[in-house]
């Protein structure tokens, strides 16, 4: 149709020629490097990727330094035979112990909560604004009126920050797990069971799976709200809520071990194995009825007479299977959230 219009009496011969020549030479002029939507998304994400990289390098440096320092001090303690708890009454050993304790506390009291909060922060500052800003500024309309399909654009738009988060949290988790395992859990002082509130989320798959899910959840929140600032705030609340809900479900991701022990009032009830997660405990009375720990508090005398205590717990060996189940669940949820976002983009209109 366009060529037929050209055949009118005023056919422009001159101006048509250079533009046709340009059409041929355009691909040749294409620069090297990423192209298409990937170029756009990388261009958009450059500041975010840079910030994540800087942060990762800093945290990694801190973790490595922490490991080196702790190992150095352990070495010194062993040379001065201060390593065993029996020697800690000596004043010079207490000083050395104090130095290690300080480092350990830095890990458990600062780094662990920070890494636990990472998925929330990722949801807030990477996920929430990702689409909210595109909707707020209308740029989603700009992109969707180019030749690219909404699906391709969205998947690339998510894949780049997704890959960034995946790589960064994998490195982070590898380092935290390593420091925790070699210096904290098996260190001379710290007894930091893996299932604890700020310990579990910094080990193994948890930081990776949670960060990806936090990102996806933030994106969905941003798409629903279409306002950047609100999306940032609401994403934080939603991801934190999801974490809280997951903590409540976590005991049921793997069968609990149930055990009865002779009731030992001195020890305060059921004694769990080292590193285990005691989910539920109480006493078994002479008539065979079970009482929960809470019921003992109501009337302590009821429990004092009981011959047996019981407990349900996850031994440390359940850590890996529980993490696998949780990570799998999170990845499925992430996929569901991404599908919903994609559907909303293609169906609901922008």
């Amino acid at each position: 149709m366009s060529t037929s219009t050209l055949s009118g009496p005023a056919t422009p011969s001159g101006p048509a020629a250079p533009s046709a020549a340009n059409g041929v030479s355009a691909p040749a002029r294409r620069r090297r490097g990423p192209s298409g939507v990937l170029w756009l998304v990388l261009h958009q994400n450059r500041p975010a990727i840079r910030s994540v990289a800087i942060l990762l390098v800093l945290v990694s440096a801190v973790l490595v330094a922490m490991h080196v320092l702790i190992q150095d001090r352990i070495g010194t303690m062993q040379q001065t035979s201060c390593y065993t708890p029996a020697s800690w009454e000596r004043i010079e050993c207490r000083v050395q112990l104090g130095r290690i304790e300080m480092l350990t506390r830095m890990f458990t009291d600062i780094l662990q909560p920070a890494v636990t909060a990472a998925p929330v922060l990722i949801g807030m500052f990477l996920g929430g604004p990702l689409l909210a800003q595109e909707y707020e500024r209308g740029t989603v309309r700009l992109v969707l009126t180019q030749s690219v399909t909404p699906r391709r654009w969205l998947l690339t738009r998510l894949a780049v920050p997704g890959a960034t988060v995946l790589v960064a949290t994998s490195v982070l988790s590898a380092l935290t797990s390593w420091v925790w395992w070699s210096d904290i859990y098996r260190g001379p002082v710290a007894f930091d069971p893996p299932f604890q509130g700020f310990t579990y989320p910094v080990l193994g798959l948890a930081p990776v799976a949670w960060s990806l899910f936090g990102l996806a959840l933030g994106v969905l929140v941003g798409q629903l709200l279409r306002r950047t600032v609100t999306a940032v705030l609401v994403s934080g609340v939603v991801v934190a809520l999801a974490q809280a809900v997951m903590v409540a479900w976590r005991p049921f991701f793997w069968p609990l071990v149930e055990e009865e022990q002779p009731y030992n009032n001195m020890m305060g009830g059921f004694v769990k194995p080292a590193g285990a997660w005691l989910v539920e405990d109480g006493v078994v009375r002479a008539d065979g009825t079970r009482l929960m720990r809470d019921q003992c508090f109501e009337a302590a005398s009821v429990c004092d007479e009981a011959p047996t205590s019981w407990g349900q717990y996850h031994p440390a060996s359940h850590f890996v299977p529980i993490q696998l189940v949780e990570a799998g669940l999170l990845l499925v949820l992430t996929a569901v959230v991404v599908t919903v976002v994609l559907r909303r983009l293609t169906r609901a209109g922008v």
């Binding site: 340009n22 059409g23 355009a26 294409r30 170029w39 992109v143």
Partner: peptide, 15 residues
């Protein structure tokens, strides 16, 4: 403009 070139196969830089 680079975005236009990257996202549109028939892009005419000159226009």
């Amino acid at each position: 403009l680079r975005m236009g070139r990257e996202l549109n196969p028939g892009w005419d830089e000159e226009a």
